[in-house]
Simulated assay, not measured.
Amino acid sequence: MVLARCAALAALLLGLAGFAGDAAAASRKGGELVGSLNLNTATAEQLALLPGVGPATARRIIEMRQKRPFQRPWEIIRVKGIGPAFFRKHKERLKVDGPTDLAWMEVRRGQTTLSAAR
């Protein structure tokens, strides 16, 4: 399973994976979220990949970072509608520097499908 996730993530990063469906569809079907998200540079679509973040919350995150960039991932709790429970759930995926490579991975019999915001 770990090897399959690494291979799928590498394919995503190299742009070799074909994207089928949207992130919400993958999550509803029991997909697994892989990768990490830079709170300071992620697009609204990338932010919405996180369970519990919709368009309004994504917009608030972007507005907050424009006023004052995040220095540490836990500062996400400054955003209205996001609390400590959200941070604890997603803290391994959140970062404040580097690229965003967050994607939903859905594993079906004999194949791996990745869904990500473009």
Score class of each variant (00 low, 15 high):
A85Q: 14
P99G: 11
R78Y: 12
M105L: 14
I76A: 07
F86K: 00
K80L: 12
E92M: 09
P84Y: 01
P84F: 02
V79L: 06
A85V: 13
P84D: 11
K89N: 11
V96I: 10
K95A: 11
R88Q: 10
M105H: 10
L94V: 06
R88L: 04
K91P: 02
P99T: 14
R88H: 03
P84K: 15
K89L: 14
L102Y: 04
K91L: 07
I76K: 02
A103D: 02
A103L: 04
K80V: 12
T100L: 00
G83E: 02
K80A: 14
D97E: 15
K89V: 08
L94Y: 04
E75S: 08
P84T: 11
R78G: 11
L102R: 05
I82K: 00
F87H: 14
K80W: 08
V79G: 08
R78V: 08
G83V: 00
F86Q: 05
W74N: 09
F87E: 05
I76T: 11
K80F: 10
F86G: 05
A103F: 03
R93M: 14
P99H: 11
H90N: 13
R93V: 03
A103S: 10
G81W: 08
L102V: 06
W104H: 05
V79A: 08
E75D: 12
H90T: 07
D101H: 11
W74Q: 13
G81Y: 08
P84C: 03
P84H: 10
V79W: 03
G81M: 09
V79P: 06
F86D: 02
R93P: 00
V79Y: 05
A103H: 02
F87Y: 15
K91G: 04
T100N: 02
D97M: 09
E75I: 07
P99F: 09
K95D: 02
W104M: 14
I82Q: 01
F86E: 02
V96M: 08
I82T: 01
